[in-house]
Amino acid sequence: MSVRLARMESVRKLKTIEKESTGIICFIQRLAQCCQSVGTLVIIVSLCLVVIGIGIAKMVMGSLFFHACPAQPLIPIWLIVGAMVSFLYTSASQTSKVAGGEHNNDARYARVIFGVFVSLFTFLWLILGTVWIVQANQHMNTCSSQTLTTMASVEHSGGRNQTINVTSSTAPPSADCNSCDSRLFNFAFGILLTEWSLLVLMLIAGCLLCCSYCCLKIFVS
């Protein structure tokens, strides 16, 4: 639906540009500006769809495998809370825009302050999720290292050799040696890598914008 509305808006802008343009050069310039705005709109809509899809997936996986990770029971909670925070922030920001308007300074400041608090919470929650997932991985590696599988060759009376697995424990498994569902752990690990990658890309983009702005101010002055 959003893509269809964006397409209709693009057609309307093209017709307006064609009517208001007085020459081919002016038309090309206005067309380039329109394409830039449409491309920005498509990127924003695509990012919103990706964020919503990831949030729904986190909510579903955290709910389905809520008790499937005894090694670290906080991993499903990390997924569910992260999805709920993103949904609440999106709905609250859109509601404040509709209720307060775009040109209301008080509503704008409230959205900025709320966004700062949500960003700080999201960053701290990401750090906690990293710690919990790393702890679960270390716990499972420690438990799996207590059991070694060796290969033994047994010769039958017919002269044929058959290789069998002989499992020997180097240490008795501890009572708290719990596991975690591989589907939940792999999904949480993938979400963790994705969010850290997006954070790094956002920081790089912010640094590039700041450098571009500084260079522009230097050349203009």
Rank of each mutant, 00 (worst) to 15 (best):
V42A: 06
V42G: 05
I43R: 07
I44C: 03
V45Q: 01
S46C: 09
L47T: 11
C48S: 15
C48R: 12
L49A: 13
L49F: 03
V51T: 13
V51I: 15
V51Y: 07
V51E: 05
I52N: 09
I52H: 06
I52E: 06
I52P: 06
G53N: 05
I54Y: 01
I54E: 07
G55K: 03
I56E: 05
M59D: 00
M59S: 12
M59W: 08
V60D: 01
M61R: 03
G62H: 09
G62R: 03
G62F: 10
G62T: 12
S63Y: 05
S63K: 08
S63M: 10
F65A: 00
F65D: 02
F66T: 05
F66P: 00
F66V: 07
F66I: 06
H67W: 02
A68P: 02
C69A: 13
A71F: 09
A71H: 09
Q72N: 14
Q72F: 07
Q72H: 06
Q72K: 10
Q72Y: 10
P73D: 02
P73V: 07
P73Q: 02
I75D: 03
P76T: 08
I77C: 02
I77A: 04
I77M: 02
W78L: 01
I80E: 00
I80G: 04
G82W: 00
G82E: 02
A83V: 11
A83S: 09
A83M: 03
M84T: 14
V85E: 01
V85F: 03
V85T: 07
S86V: 07
S86T: 12
S86Q: 04
F87M: 09
Y89C: 14
Y89P: 12
T90K: 02
T90I: 07
A92W: 00
S93M: 13
Q94H: 14
Q94V: 14
Q94M: 11
Q94A: 15
S96M: 14
K97N: 14
K97P: 03
V98A: 14
V98N: 00
A99H: 06
A99K: 06
A99N: 06
G100A: 08
G100L: 04
G101N: 03
G101C: 06
G101W: 02
E102S: 13
E102F: 09
H103E: 15
H103P: 10
N104T: 12
N104V: 14
D106R: 14
A107E: 05
A107M: 08
A107W: 02
R108A: 06
R108T: 11
R108C: 07
Y109F: 13
Y109T: 15
A110T: 12
A110S: 15
A110V: 12
A110N: 09
R111W: 07
V112Q: 04
V112L: 11
F114K: 03
F114Y: 09
F114N: 01
F114S: 05
V116M: 10
V116N: 11
F117V: 13
V118G: 07
V118Q: 04
S119D: 13
S119F: 13
S119E: 13
F121R: 00
T122Y: 08
T122A: 15
T122D: 08
T122Q: 10
F123C: 12
W125I: 04
L126T: 11
L128K: 07
T130D: 03
T130S: 08
W132T: 11
W132V: 12
W132A: 09
Q135N: 15
Q135L: 14
A136F: 05
